[in-house]
Nucleic acid binder design. Structure first.
Length: 275
DNA sequence: CTTTAACCCTGGAGGC
DNA sequence: TGCCTCCAGGGTTAAA
């Protein structure tokens, strides 16, 4: 469910509530996530004050004085505020309980994670899961040259290289296809063959795609929180190519193609993205 | 070192 | 209805 825009929207949601508050309880109803939720996590954080709510890539970082909770939403996760007395539903695996607020981690597929990084082991950024992540797309350090340098000598297809997250984070499967369409670059092009000109186009396309999606992501998340029925979905977003196989390109009417790269679906216009 | 593929898991959609 | 297969927005890990 979450790509970077929804994770960032989630972060903003918890950041307006959690910091400065005492976490009264952490209820772990299902510890079997991507990795087991540490057994002693609840007692470690109970009655500790949340200092900050940050994000690195698609990881949410809930900071305490003693350490940082690392939360990932995986493919199907959401972290939403819920009324204190609302009945917990199926797949609501973890609860954060404050005096006047409550948050539920809901994750049917359990690809998500809740981990703990003790600050005695150094800054959270040195955690193995975070240490080799690429630059944040909205960081000023992310430039066309970042891409050109990182792609240099790579034989990997550009789509796969983008998705790997070790060059720039936050470009998920939907937005990898969307950004390449905006940049008019064929997803199969070897990363190392991209000129600086095309890296500049791709850089701008990544920023505009993510920034557009951030607004949509925010609205789908609000729908999700308020939903009594089905949550908002990224499939509702006006995608140029994603999930549009066989349908006419919005620019040239050529049917959109679907291929598989690295076991993930890629969509592109064979005419607009000829190479 | 780079690149590829298997795998973790549930549920929804569509075919029969 | 039911049963089956396929597919899904992520990312780590082992193997080639």
């Amino acid at each position: 469910m979450p790509e970077l825009p929804e994770v960032e929207t989630t972060r903003r949601g918890i950041a307006t509530v959690m910091p400065g508050k005492v976490l009264r309880a952490l209820l772990v109803h299902e510890p079997r996530m991507r990795w087991p939720i540490p057994e002693h996590l609840a007692q470690t954080v109970t009655n500790q004050v949340v200092q900050r709510c940050e994000r690195r890539g698609k990881y949410l970082l809930i900071g305490f004085n003693a350490g940082t909770m690392i939360v990932h939403l995986g493919m199907s996760g959401s972290l939403r505020r819920a009324p204190i007395n609302e009945i917990r539903r199926k797949h609501d695996h973890v609860e954060w309980i404050f005096d006047d607020a409550r948050f539920l981690l809901h994750d049917p597929r359990r690809f998500g994670a809740v981990l703990w990084h003790d600050h005695r082991n150094g800054p959270v950024q040195t955690h193995p899961l975070l240490a080799s992540l690429g630059v944040e797309p909205f960081d000023p350090g992310f430039t066309p040259l970042t891409l050109r340098q990182a792609f240099k000598d790579k034989k990997q297809a550009i789509k796969t290289a983008l998705l790997a997250g070790d060059i720039v984070v936050g470009v998920g499967n939907i937005y990898a296809s969307e950004a390449l369409f905006r940049a008019r670059i064929n997803p199969k092009t070897a990363a190392g063959r991209l000129s600086l000109t095309r890296c500049t186009r791709l850089h701008a396309a990544i920023l505009s795609t993510l920034s557009d999606a951030l607004h949509s992501g925010g609205s789908t998340l609000r729908d999700y929180v308020n939903a009594t029925g089905t949550p908002g979905s990224y499939f509702d977003i006006h995608a140029a190519v994603y999930n549009r196989a066989g349908q006419p390109c919005r620019v040239c009417q050529t049917p959109i193609k679907k291929i598989v790269q690295g076991q993930r679906a890629t969509y592109y216009c064979p005419k607009c993205q000829a190479r």
